Simulated scan of single mutants.
Amino acid sequence: MDQHKYLKPIEVFLGVPYATPPIHSNRFSPTRTPSPWDGVRISDKLGAVCPQKLPDISNETEALEKMPKGRLEYLKRLLPYLKNQSEDCLYLNIYAPAQASFVLLVK
């Protein structure tokens, strides 16, 4: 059976800023609304993640002494997305139901 048979189409907007970057003079300040942009903003790439210490899983034997196999497999899939780190990390990834498109026929 097709496991995706019942999934509905979605719209995906990646890396949408929700606040000014907390860098330089804004580093320890409360967040502020981001600056508006002109025209259409391309939102097809994930934004950076906030800085964090990543676990070292290069030696799987040692890693398995500290975590279950399921967590190790999860981290192996997740780590490529966590390598892009920056203090400029206040971005949203938005997944919304796709809007139906209607065609207006004029006689």
Rank of each mutant, 00 (worst) to 15 (best):
I23M: 03
I23C: 02
H24T: 02
S25W: 12
S25P: 00
S25L: 09
N26Q: 14
N26Y: 13
N26I: 06
R27F: 12
R27D: 08
R27W: 13
R27K: 13
F28G: 01
F28K: 04
F28M: 10
S29I: 06
P30K: 11
P30C: 07
T33H: 06
T33N: 09
T33V: 15
P34G: 09
P34M: 04
S35A: 14
P36S: 07
P36W: 04
P36Q: 06
P36Y: 09
W37V: 15
D38F: 05
D38W: 02
G39P: 04
V40Y: 12
R41W: 07
R41G: 06
I42W: 04
I42V: 14
I42K: 10
I42H: 08
S43L: 11
D44E: 11
D44T: 15
L46A: 13
G47R: 12
A48E: 14
A48K: 13
A48D: 14
V49C: 10
V49N: 15
V49Y: 09
V49D: 12
C50F: 15
C50D: 10
C50L: 10
C50T: 15
K53L: 14
K53Y: 10
K53W: 04
D56P: 06
D56V: 11
D56G: 10
I57F: 05
I57M: 09
S58P: 02
N59F: 09
N59P: 03
E60I: 15
E60D: 15
T61M: 12
T61Y: 12
A63I: 09
A63N: 08
L64D: 06
E65W: 04
K66W: 07
M67F: 07
M67D: 09
M67L: 13
M67N: 05
M67C: 04
M67W: 08
M67T: 10
P68R: 10
P68K: 10
G70N: 11
G70V: 11
R71S: 06
L72Q: 04
L72Y: 12
L72S: 03
L72G: 02
E73I: 09
Y74N: 03
L75H: 01
K76P: 00
K76M: 05
K76I: 06
R77Q: 03
R77G: 04
L78H: 02
L78Y: 00
L78C: 02
L78R: 03
L79F: 02
P80H: 08
Y81K: 07
L82H: 03
K83Q: 06
K83E: 09
N84R: 08
D88V: 01
C89L: 02
C89I: 05
L90D: 07
L90C: 06
L90Q: 07
L90G: 04
L92W: 01
L92S: 04
N93F: 00
N93S: 03
I94A: 01
I94G: 00
I94E: 02
Y95Q: 01
A96F: 00
A96K: 08
A96Y: 01
A96I: 00
A96D: 00
